[in-house]
């Protein structure tokens, strides 16, 4: 018997999105030729926040693991990069990848401890973990102790032959990290694990009864996110050229802003964190001169969005237009039925 059905995943909108995204990616990859040095730096920062928000969103929006301690991995990645580059002479760009692997490895023993905690207790536990990391790295005098350390000029010069080339390389690495983070989330959600993840988000009871290993699924997501967050952290501090415990494990910079981005963009959507990052940087670049008033405006925007569009701006938009740019759902089409 011929197969009387087919499984479709893409939609018209998603095919157009794929083309637009590729064009945008090509344009962004060419930025060193059309953007100034300051713009490249800013874009690098934007990419790192796209990555952080996308990863946090996977954790909170899909796996139900609301962490307020992802700065643990940002800081760990930063310090890992400095240690690898300074003590072992590893090329900084390679060190970013190694920092990611180290972050994932450290998450494996950490996860079982945190997973014993539920809901709000889990959130607090992640924060405590980040503080433990901060206090731990502050004790390492060879990494500058409590006051931090700068990346030696020799290491920086070792990235590439000339300064423009170095800045170009660093920029591309940032772009690659953002693309990797988004790609990771999309591929994961489209896979078997994604099916399990969406199922257990809706009902853990039914998931367990249908044979899904909840613990292992969450562990996989937590470890994957930890690894990529550490890579992003390594990049962030390579760009900053200086790391200190307070900057590396800042709950404000690496978690509060990231949650702000995910919440205003739309938790539980792939598009949300990207939209949120753009809005966040627009606000920051136009209002940052206002000092504390800027923070008050950020707070007001967050409150307004949460009240008026609890699904975030992208969630609000998607609900009205029915538009999904990145398809993770499956449609079954029967050949004996017209659509």
């Amino acid at each position: 018997m011929a197969q009387a059905y087919s499984i479709e995943r893409s939609t018209r909108a998603s095919r157009i999105t794929a083309i637009v995204a590729l064009l945008a990616l090509a344009a962004l990859a060419a930025a060193p030729w059309w953007a100034g040095r300051a713009d490249l730096r800013l874009l690098g920062e934007v990419y790192s926040f796209v990555a952080l928000a996308t990863l946090w969103n996977l954790l909170a929006g899909y796996a139900g693991l609301v962490s307020v301690g992802q700065q643990a991995y940002v800081g760990f990645g930063g310090y890992a990069l400095f240690a690898l580059a300074m003590f072992l002479g590893v090329h900084p760009l390679l060190a970013i990848v190694l920092a990611g692997i180290a972050g994932a490895l450290i998450a494996i023993p950490v996860a079982p401890l945190l997973f014993r905690l539920q809901g709000a207790y889990f959130a607090i536990g992640t924060w405590v973990l980040a503080e433990v990391f901060r206090l731990g790295f502050a004790q390492v005098s060879s990494l500058g102790g409590g006051s931090g350390i700068s990346l030696p000029a020799g290491v920086v010069a070792g990235i590439a032959a000339s300064r423009p080339l170095r800045e170009m390389l660093v920029y591309w690495v940032a772009l690659a990290i953002a693309v990797a983070a988004i790609g990771f989330v999309v591929l994961l959600l489209r896979s078997r694990i994604g099916l399990a993840l969406t199922a257990l988000r809706d009902s853990e009871l039914a998931s367990e009864s249908l044979g899904i290993d909840i613990w292992r699924t969450k562990l996989l997501v937590y470890v994957g996110v930890a690894g990529l967050t550490s890579m992003t952290g390594a990049f962030i501090f390579l760009q900053k050229l200086r790391v200190s415990p307070d900057a590396a494990f800042s709950v404000n910079d690496w978690t509060a802003y990231v949650i702000f981005i995910a919440v205003i963009g739309g938790i539980g959507t792939i598009e949300g964190p990207i939209v949120g990052t753009v809005i966040f940087f627009l606000l920051r670049e136009t209002l940052a001169d206002l000092g504390t008033t800027y923070l008050m405006i950020l707070g007001a925007v967050a409150i307004l969005v949460m009240l008026r569009a609890p699904q975030g701006l992208w969630g609000w938009f998607a609900a009205r237009t029915g538009l999904t740019l990145v398809p993770v759902r499956r449609r079954v089409v029967f050949s004996d039925q017209s659509k």
């Binding site: 199922a199 809706d202 009902s203």
Partner: peptide, 9 residues
């Protein structure tokens, strides 16, 4: 206990 965010299929 349906998985509400998923289709029936």
């Amino acid at each position: 206990h349906p998985f509400s965010g998923m289709t029936t299929y």
